[in-house]
Nucleic acid binder design. Structure first.
Lengths: 218, 218
DNA sequence: CGACAACTTGACCATTATCAAGCAAGGTGG
DNA sequence: CCACCTTGCTTGATAATGGTCAAGTTGTCG
């Protein structure tokens, strides 16, 4: 306990930011903000899961991130959002006015530090995701996804590390991993046949062989 | 000219940061820093091109970004780099001590603002790249790449918008676009046959039909 | 119980990867 | 100055991963 706060000079960055905003709830599949809308707010997930995505003219979709409790989304440099955000399931988010946030950050070093921490977390996730989309096989993508979701769910809500709830549909997973829904389904089946995971139901996954999964993770 | 500085409340963020560092030069293909090394510096490109990349155990490589003059790289939240950086060609970079940078940013709002601008620019490029890697075809990837490089080269060095110099090898392009070297080569040949581009030499590209390229860009 | 959405599975296909030559440009040493 | 080698690029033939199209199955909600 000696120097307990050493890892978080900016203790719980998401809380620092969320404290400045008002909680809002969104129902499954409802839009939190749309591509090209005026970017007036930054958001922090309180409960539930949010997907942040880009759409191409012909309907192809790339989900850039699933945001779990504690994650922030809606950062922009310009004055408009460059992607849309939707509730994957029923969820609560803290909505913080950008103007308020930046005004306060100027005079509040703890807040400024929290903003850094949150936006960098997003950058790092994006960078890891580039490697996945550019160079990993379907099996590696799914394996990485499951491990990551398990780790982050555990961190955010204290869920088990070996049992993952999938709040999102197969289509969402496919659009996140740069695959099709069929390939995601087949890959999960294949991992189950290899006894790497088991699927007690389509939205619950047990990680049976974590070392096999970690091997897929690279 | 009236309100000339409106777009850059933090005028030329890269210059503000670069001013704090010392210029260093690197020769073609030399390493600027390696994955997992202690992250003591942040860098700004002054001239030349830098590639920032991740490697997998079996040698697969993903280039996360090509950094042109004015771009910054080497941001980290933790104390170690999570990727490596190498000189694509002879290049000069400003090397800034992280400790100095962050100490000064605390008391210098212009600098703090410049840091935001630079790191967000990186985040946005990463996010656009996710869509490319996850959902675009080979032809779309190459088209997007050429347009982007032309635009950024023009912005950084005043180069022409219709003639692109490729400072990087086909292998670098492939590892950036999530393709193989052969597919990049074939795709360029194919675009030339369609009269969308021409290739006076392997490292020079003329953008003949920008609207066709923009259609590929989505 | 019926209807609908979400998921799985199968058969076939296409894009891109792999493997293997061949070619062009640039540098070096005789 | 030229033969030789190296490196980087292109092209071709073939293979494989993942995509597409089409049925089925499961599960949920009225």
């Amino acid at each position: 306990m000696a120097k307990g706060a050493s890892t978080d000079e900016c203790a719980r960055p998401s809380l620092v930011v969320a404290a400045l905003g008002a909680p809002v709830t969104f129902s499954r599949n409802s839009e939190i903000f749309g591509d090209d809308e005026l970017a007036e707010h930054v958001y922090v997930v309180l409960s539930g899961v949010v997907r942040v995505c880009k759409l191409m003219g012909d309907g192809r979709r790339q989900i850039e991130a699933f945001c779990l409790p504690g994650d922030a989304f809606g950062w922009e440099t310009g004055d408009r959002y460059r992607f849309s955000a939707e509730a994957v399931n029923e969820c609560r988010v803290a909505r913080v006015k950008r103007s308020v946030l930046f005004a306060r950050a100027g005079s509040n070093p703890e807040l400024a530090c929290a903003l850094w921490a949150l936006s960098f977390a997003e950058l790092q996730r994006a960078q890891d995701h580039l490697l996945l989309l550019g160079r990993k096989t379907a099996q590696e993508r799914v394996g990485t996804f499951l491990l990551d979701l398990a780790r982050r769910s555990a961190a955010a809500t204290g869920a088990s590390l070996t049992e993952v709830q999938l709040p999102m549909s197969r289509q969402d997973i496919a659009d996140f991993l740069g695959l099709t829904i069929e390939t995601v389904s087949r890959t999960l089946t294949c991992l189950e046949e290899q006894a790497t995971i088991s699927l007690p139901s389509s939205r619950r996954v047990l990680l049976r062989d974590r070392s096999a999964l970690r091997r897929l993770d690279s």
